[in-house]
Design a protein around this nucleic acid. Structure first.
Lengths: 296, 296
DNA sequence: TCCTCATATTTGTCCTGGACAAATACGCCA
DNA sequence: TGGCGTATTTGTCCAGGACAAATATGAGGA
């Protein structure tokens, strides 16, 4: 059930106790049955809470009230989106998967893989994310975008890897912590490192922390690249990074990036604010490495 | 915490109450802190329980006892794996991502995409899965396999789609229910449908059921293809299929497949036991469609 | 008027211990 | 030996209480 509206079971329970909503029916044994309309209202509530409303102020109000509030939130962001994003939103509205892929491919060819991954990609992802929690987009449309974007970007990365550019260190290991299921940020980072000629190995998302550490050792990684989306609570990101840092040797650097607001550099953990920072950071790493390996 | 050993919080609690294990430390406030060695033992326990052992018989025994039991389980399966699988296991053992990708690509080229997706892929996936829960493979090695396999297969699918073969109906929508995070089965199915010249649209994994239904309508899908891995409890798969069937129009067929043992055909839900069954099934669908559209 | 800091309120998550239905094993009879 | 009814095991839910972190509120000073 909590999967259907994005709210943990404990939260549903305590809302019911404190605010009198939701008011689920009970089956013959006494278990909660959430009617479809209450689930729909809960979904609205989740978005409002994510947008900054206090549960005490909005839980218990009618679905119509909530829709009104939802429309007031986030509308300003709508004006600022670029022309690519508008085109993408139109195609998503028309459920045109093939057209979407064509447009994305065209952007890669026109702007290049670097600009696509570092500039256009994050912009599109943010526009889609915003549109989703404004209610302008269904979840399945967001899934469709993610799928097409992934396909296009991965095939571009493959092409870049096969291009015969000499691959050399740093050896970079990509993954996310178990609480982070989003793969787009990781893939965009992989693109940037690939363009720098790095040796990249991806574990995909949601690898347990001891396993990331074990993999870093097994693959003799120089850099561990972690991606944190804006959906992940900042404390979890910080805790994950600290745990990871404690598990792996100091010779392995940890580079964290993504839209997560609470990300802060720590000893042994670099934070790259933007994907465009990857190029210079790799150059700096190589300079350090050359100096360090010079016999004194 | 439950994320780290794959056991729900409630289960950990009740094991603690009934069997006296785990015995977590408490922080200053009284919250449970699971030491690393207990987490490791819990991971062993999870595998044993998955393999059929009763919790009452194994929870509370020492880690060494459990390792012995784990070795006894599943060893017979080891002998039967093919030479490709042995090669893959060797490469995984050496953490050789590039070599793994080369081998997979070579299989695609030698055997063709159809045989790769329908025969080799499931065999490899099973071998890797078995090796994992036997303890012969780390989780990060399984992640590495999944990532490389996905990359190779997706790029082969892209090539097939771009090959200029005329695409025509049925229009197939791919996804999995929210409880099913595994994407390999879905991707192999997508390959098979692509080879038949179908129009495929993937939503990726873990789409909420009402959203799958909405997408089926929006995309005017003829067939909804769902994948169920062997890890998903059969009742959840059956319930998900029933709910889905109730949400979408009868004109949309539901085809389910995968290694999930409890999968049974129902009215309006076909079950394809093997990926090789997709080709004939598509042919049959087209025959039905042609007959149906003939003016009487 | 605006900013800063201390206090009050809100909110999510964890706690304990009890209950029960589904799944599984066991024993009986043909 | 095999099928079936009963006993046990097992996972998940329930209720209400507690507390720390997050957030809002208000007082005092520049």
């Amino acid at each position: 059930m909590e999967r259907d509206c994005g709210l943990p079971k404990d939260t549903l329970r305590v809302w019911e106790r404190r605010y009198g909503f939701p008011k689920p029916l009970r089956d013959h044994h006494g278990e909660r049955i959430y009617p479809a309309d209450q689930v729909a209202t809960l979904r609205l509530l989740r978005r409002l809470v994510d947008a900054g409303h206090r549960p005490g102020k909005v839980v218990g109000r009618s679905g119509e009230d909530l829709s009104v509030l939802l429309r007031q939130v986030g509308t300003p962001a709508l004006q600022a989106i670029g022309s690519e994003a508008q085109q993408v939103m139109t195609l998503l509205g028309a459920h045109d998967a093939a057209g979407l892929r064509e447009v994305l491919n065209a952007i890669v060819l026109r702007a290049g893989l670097g600009a696509f991954a570092a500039e256009v990609g994050p912009g599109l992802a943010e526009a889609v994310g915003t549109a989703w929690w404004r209610g302008a987009l269904e979840i399945h449309q967001e899934h469709l975008f993610t799928e097409q974007f992934t396909t296009v970007l991965r095939s571009a990365i493959n092409a870049a890897q096969g291009a015969g550019l000499p691959r050399r260190r740093p050896r970079v290991l990509f993954s996310t912590i178990p609480q982070e299921p989003h793969s787009l940020g990781l893939l965009m980072a992989e693109a940037m490192f690939t363009l720098e000629g790095c040796l990249g190995i991806s574990l995909g998302v949601q690898t347990p922390i001891p396993e990331i550490a074990a993999a870093a050792r097994a693959h003799k990684a120089d850099i561990l690249a972690l991606s944190f989306s804006s959906m992940i609570p900042a404390p979890q990101a910080v805790a994950g990074l600290a745990e990871l840092r404690a598990h792996i040797p100091d010779t392995v650097e940890i580079w964290a990036g993504g839209a997560c607001p609470g990300l802060r550099p720590k000893p042994g953990v670099s934070v790259l604010r933007a994907l465009s920072a990857i190029g210079p950071a790799v150059t700096a790493w190589r300079a350090r490495e050359d100096k360090g390996s010079t016999p004194e």
